[in-house]
Amino acid sequence: MMKRQILVIIMMISTLGIYSFNKYNANDAKTSFASFYHDKFNGKKTASGEIFSNSKLTAANRTLPFGTQLKVTNIRTGKSVIVRVNDRGPFHSSRALDLSKAAFDSIGNPDRGTMPIEYEIVD
C-alpha cells in the first residue's frame, strides 16, 4: 500500500511539474540554424503553389502556416531581415529555416552555407 501511495505522489508531482514549467508560446523567439536555397530551385513551384525566386525575401519552415512573417536575426552579426514563409523544409533536423538567397545574403555570408539564427513571428 505504501509503495502505491508513493508512486501516486511521484506521478502527481511529475504531472504538475510538466504543466507549471511549460510556458511555451508560439510567438517566442527561437534559435536554430538556417541555410539557403540553391539556384536550381528558381522558377520551381513551392509547397504553397507560389513560384520560387531566390531574389525575394522568403523562407521554408516545416510547420508554420504559409504567409507567416518572420524576423530572422543572424546571431553572429546581429543583422535582421523579415521573410515570408511560402514553402516546406528544410528537411535537415538541425535547421529550422531555408532562406532565399536574397534573405540569407542580406544578413549572412553565403560562403558559409549555414548560420546560427534567432527567429520570431512578426505581425
Results as ranks from 00 to 15, higher is better:
1 M>C: 09
1 M>A: 13
1 M>S: 11
1 M>I: 09
5 Q>W: 12
6 I>F: 13
9 I>R: 08
10 I>F: 11
14 S>A: 15
16 L>K: 05
17 G>D: 13
18 I>F: 12
19 Y>M: 15
19 Y>G: 15
21 F>M: 15
23 K>N: 12
24 Y>D: 02
24 Y>P: 00
25 N>E: 10
26 A>Y: 01
27 N>Q: 09
28 D>I: 05
28 D>T: 07
29 A>D: 05
29 A>V: 08
29 A>Q: 06
29 A>R: 03
29 A>G: 12
29 A>K: 07
30 K>G: 03
30 K>M: 11
31 T>D: 04
32 S>L: 13
32 S>T: 14
32 S>G: 14
34 A>E: 01
34 A>W: 01
35 S>C: 08
35 S>I: 09
35 S>D: 04
36 F>H: 13
36 F>L: 07
37 Y>C: 05
39 D>C: 02
39 D>T: 14
41 F>I: 11
41 F>K: 03
42 N>S: 06
42 N>F: 05
42 N>V: 11
43 G>H: 14
45 K>W: 04
45 K>H: 08
46 T>D: 02
47 A>T: 13
47 A>H: 05
48 S>P: 06
49 G>Y: 04
49 G>Q: 01
50 E>Q: 08
50 E>G: 00
51 I>N: 04
51 I>C: 03
53 S>E: 02
54 N>C: 06
54 N>S: 15
55 S>F: 10
56 K>M: 02
56 K>W: 00
56 K>R: 10
56 K>C: 01
58 T>Q: 00
59 A>S: 10
62 R>G: 09
62 R>F: 05
62 R>C: 09
62 R>Q: 14
63 T>Y: 08
63 T>V: 07
65 P>W: 00
66 F>P: 12
66 F>I: 06
66 F>Q: 10
67 G>K: 09
67 G>R: 14
68 T>F: 14
69 Q>E: 10
69 Q>A: 10
70 L>F: 11
70 L>M: 09
70 L>W: 10
71 K>S: 12
72 V>C: 11
72 V>K: 10
73 T>P: 01
73 T>F: 01
74 N>G: 08
76 R>T: 14
76 R>H: 14
76 R>L: 13
79 K>L: 06
80 S>W: 04
80 S>G: 02
81 V>Q: 11
81 V>S: 07
81 V>F: 07
83 V>T: 09
84 R>K: 15
84 R>H: 07
85 V>K: 01
86 N>S: 05
86 N>M: 03
87 D>W: 02
87 D>Y: 02
90 P>V: 06
90 P>C: 03
90 P>I: 03
90 P>L: 02
91 F>P: 06
91 F>C: 11
93 S>N: 09
93 S>L: 02
95 R>V: 00
95 R>S: 00
95 R>M: 00
95 R>F: 00
96 A>T: 08
96 A>H: 06
96 A>E: 11
97 L>T: 13
97 L>S: 10
99 L>A: 05
101 K>D: 08
103 A>V: 03
105 D>G: 04
106 S>V: 12
108 G>A: 15
109 N>H: 01
109 N>V: 04
110 P>Q: 12
110 P>E: 09
110 P>F: 11
112 R>Q: 12
112 R>E: 14
112 R>P: 01
113 G>R: 05
113 G>H: 03
113 G>E: 07
116 P>C: 03
116 P>A: 13
117 I>F: 01
118 E>Q: 15
118 E>W: 02
119 Y>A: 08
119 Y>C: 11
120 E>K: 06
122 V>E: 03
